[in-house]
């Protein structure tokens, strides 16, 4: 879809893929045929730019046909460059301006708690958006309001547009900072599915405080020429690079095209 769109973010979606896929297929209580189901869990992408993984997962789950992915970022599409609440089934909030998703997630969590509902809220966050002051307002408030139905997942891929996060504006020691704010902190290898599953389970059983799963990941995970390279933050692959990337990920453009046509 990124080759087709000729623009968009490649590296971040790949660093999120393992924990996000696990979330949708193994953890979430949701009904793709009824996106507004009152008993659903919510997923808010505070890093709006990872729409390629967000939309791919929604399509794979059945919120809309796979072939829609080829309209990503094009005029008239319901798949906007960054998530739009009013346009896309399964998108729970309009984001794209960094540092806002955790506050939105906190509001949803408070609303659900007020109504005595068991639904949970997951917030997908990035490392560099911890450079936004508003993120810390939300970190403080979520602990203050003791929302244990809120689980943030931090994609710690150490890459942002201008370079390595640690070199641009270092957010570390990030785990200690969350602990100081009285969050439940779980650190994992963000590409180890067993660790990911275990982290989600531990978050669910935590009472009286929000949980952050700090997922140590690699930008461009799974594609040799992208892995760990911040230059892949905001660029799409060329058709040749796309074909090579797909083959490294165990598929081909041909297989994809067939699936899309049949969807």
């Amino acid at each position: 879809m990124l080759v087709e769109a000729k623009s968009g973010h490649t590296g971040g979606p790949l660093s999120c893929t393992d924990f996000a896929t696990t979330l949708y297929f193994n953890v979430l209580n949701h009904d793709p045929k009824n996106p507004k189901h009152p008993d659903r869990d919510y997923v808010v992408y505070s890093i709006g730019h990872v729409t390629p993984v967000n939309y791919s997962l929604l399509a794979e789950c059945g919120y809309f046909p796979l072939r829609d992915l080829m309209t990503f970022r094009k005029l008239g599409t319901h798949l906007q460059g960054h998530p739009s609440y009013l346009d896309t089934p399964g998108v729970e909030a309009s984001t794209g301006s960094l540092g806002q998703g955790l506050s939105i997630s906190l509001g949803i969590a408070l609303g659900l708690r007020m109504d005595g509902k068991p639904n949970r809220v997951y917030c997908i966050m990035g490392d560099a958006e911890h450079q936004e002051g508003a993120t810390w307002e939300a970190v403080m408030a979520a602990a203050n309001f003791k929302v244990d139905n809120l689980c943030a997942v931090l994609d710690l891929n150490n890459a942002q547009i201008d370079g390595r996060m640690e070199e641009i504006m270092n957010i570390h020691p990030i785990a200690d900072k969350y602990r100081a704010f009285r969050w439940n902190v779980i650190e994992i290898d963000g590409h180890d599915v067993l660790q990911i599953l275990d982290a989600y389970r531990r978050a669910m059983s935590t009472k009286g405080s929000p949980t952050v799963i700090i997922a140590h990941t690699k930008m461009g995970r799974g594609v040799s020429f992208m892995e760990g390279d911040y230059k892949w933050h905001g660029n799409p692959p060329s058709p040749e690079q796309g074909e090579k990337a797909l083959s490294e990920l165990g598929t081909t453009y041909g297989i994809w095209s067939k699936r899309l046509r049949e969807s």
Partner: peptide, 21 residues
């Protein structure tokens, strides 16, 4: 909800509450 001296968070928490109905 008294959100303290943090208006930006307050605004988005309100947005979240509206998303929860």
């Amino acid at each position: 909800f008294n959100c303290g001296v943090a208006e930006q968070n307050m605004c988005d928490v309100a947005a979240g509450l509206s998303l929860a109905g």
